[in-house]
């Protein structure tokens, strides 16, 4: 936990029961243009919201109390202080999580909106997928021309955004006695193919014995670096920490006839095609890791 977590919960709890808004006034009376804009956005064609006897969609209740770009009027000092404290604690982002509304009377064009709100509760510091922060619940009483028109309970999460994790390192190769020579070759920017000492058959990946004749004797030949895409898949899901899907994984047939699985680079993942010529390239991924990959097109390089 960061030191931000040290923010005394008691200091936040003290705001419970205090006013969040006092004698707030809606910036506009209930009006047809705002109703129409709302209905257009929602795709709501309800006939009750148009014509001479139109009412506002009840779910617009909160919209009439919104401060808009010019900010809230009527918001209490206590509420501003609470939000300020949370900002100072690093909880600078806000997201709404719950909304409970009760509609006591329909709102009609011309109705003047006033409202009061109270801070019902401030939660302990909670860790969510978005980050850590506090849930703040307010309850607002909305009036139209002075008559009760509805209640609006609203819960927000004020949170410190979770920092994106630093990109994970690619997996390390598992090096053992049977394949150590291959990885030593990669370290020298050479792609080495095993050749059977008995029958001369080339093999890849590296194995202790020949699949054709069984001989344990072998030496190596260096791949020319030319190849073609024999097959491929595009990885979309699941994502692995070090990789950024979608990406293409190719089965590359080397000019020498053996095949190797590697990334196809230098071409969008969805432009990789079977038969596409590729060229070996050694790519450095971090201080320790160099891998043989294949670049589409004639360009290559060591």
């Amino acid at each position: 936990m960061s030191d931000e977590a040290a923010e005394p919960a008691a200091r936040l709890k003290a705001y419970e029961g205090r006013a969040a808004a006092v004698a707030g006034v809606g910036k506009d009376p209930v009006n047809e243009p705002m109703i129409r804009h709302w209905c257009e956005a929602m795709g709501d064609t309800n006939a009750a919201y148009t014509g001479p006897d139109a009412v506002a969609p009840p779910t617009m209740l909160q919209a009439w109390t919104m401060g808009g770009l010019s900010g809230h009027e009527g918001r209490s000092d206590a509420y501003d202080e609470l939000l300020g404290l949370l900002d100072e604690a690093g909880c600078t982002s806000v997201v709404a999580t719950d909304c409970e509304q009760e509609y006591l009377r329909p709102l009609r064009p011309g109705d003047e909106i006033t409202f009061d709100a109270v801070i019902e509760s401030v939660s302990e510091r909670k860790t969510t997928k978005l980050g850590t922060g506090h849930f703040v619940t307010t309850r607002m009483d909305v009036r139209a021309n002075g008559e009760p028109a509805g209640t609006h309970r609203f819960r927000i999460l004020k949170y410190a955004p979770a920092r994106p994790k630093s990109k994970a390192a690619r997996p390390r190769p598992v090096v053992n006695r049977d394949n150590a020579g291959f990885w030593e070759g990669v370290g020298r920017h050479q792609l080495l193919i095993q050749r059977c000492g008995g029958c001369g058959t080339l093999r890849f990946p590296w194995l202790p014995g020949c699949g054709a004749c069984g001989s344990p004797e072998w030496d190596t030949v260096e791949a020319s670096g030319d190849g073609t895409v024999y097959s491929y898949v595009v990885m979309h899901h699941p994502p692995f920490p070090a990789f950024d899907p979608p990406y293409a994984v190719g089965l590359i047939e080397l000019a020498e006839g053996v095949r190797i699985v590697s990334n196809v680079i230098g071409v969008p993942y969805d432009k990789v095609r079977i038969g596409m010529p590729v060229r070996l390239r050694f790519e450095r991924y971090d201080e320790e890791l160099v891998l043989p990959v294949f670049r589409a097109g004639a360009e290559g390089g060591r």
């Binding site: 709501d44 009750a48 009840p58 779910t59 909304c99 509304q101 509609y103």
Partner: peptide, 24 residues
């Protein structure tokens, strides 16, 4: 909230009146 309200009144018709909408 608006879409949930619309979903209900689309179904029950313009004479239906929303009394409470509570969403999470």
């Amino acid at each position: 909230n608006g879409l949930v309200g619309r979903y209900i009144t689309d179904h029950f018709g313009p004479a239906a009146v929303l009394r409470k909408v509570a969403i999470r």
